[in-house]
């Protein structure tokens, strides 16, 4: 592998990225976890989480991230998200009806309320985040092969 310092963008961009990327990801998690209380939800949160990964790829060059998360792994994690969502639906089926809300409503405006919306949001976040990441990885790895 080449030296990290010489791939990707300039030092300024790398430093700013290092400071902001965790905040961006945290914001994505916040949007996801409070999706049933405020505007937002699994899809928006997942896109933000994926954007934080894409941010790293843009700043540090594609080799840096592609070594840590291969498109294979991203695909598997994405599928896990889908499977989680389906499992929620099937658990509802076990409680009587497909997609039935088997968790109670809970106390309004507390974090753990709103039945299956919170776990569904998390599942969607995983699905969307890693789905977008794997699509992005596929596209950039593809153009990489093309140049050789």
């Amino acid at each position: 592998m080449k030296d990290n310092k010489h791939t990707g963008m300039t030092l300024i961009v790398k430093t700013v990225t290092r400071w902001t990327v965790l905040l961006i990801m945290l914001y994505g998690w916040y949007i996801t976890f409070f999706g049933h209380l405020s505007p937002g939800g699994g899809f928006a949160g997942g896109v933000i989480v994926a954007l934080s990964f894409i941010h790293i790829i843009l700043a540090y060059g594609k080799d840096f991230v592609a070594e840590k998360i291969s498109e294979h792994l991203a695909g598997i994690l994405e599928t896990t998200g889908g499977l989680m969502f389906l499992t929620l639906a099937i658990l509802g089926l076990a409680a009587g009806i497909f997609f039935k809300d088997f968790l109670g409503q809970g106390k309004v405006f507390s974090l753990f309320s709103g039945g299956i919306i919170l776990p569904a949001n998390i599942a969607i976040m995983i699905k969307v985040g890693f789905g977008m990441l794997s699509a992005f990885l596929c596209l950039i790895l593809f153009s990489y092969q093309d140049k050789k």
Binding site: H72, G75, I76, T79, L86, A89, I90
Partner: peptide, 19 residues
């Protein structure tokens, strides 16, 4: 409802294990 559940579950399980 199994007509949707079964193929979809197959998609997800297959793309994890079938790999």
């Amino acid at each position: 409802s199994l007509f949707i559940i079964l193929p979809l579950a197959t998609v997800f399980i297959n793309s994890i294990i079938g790999r």
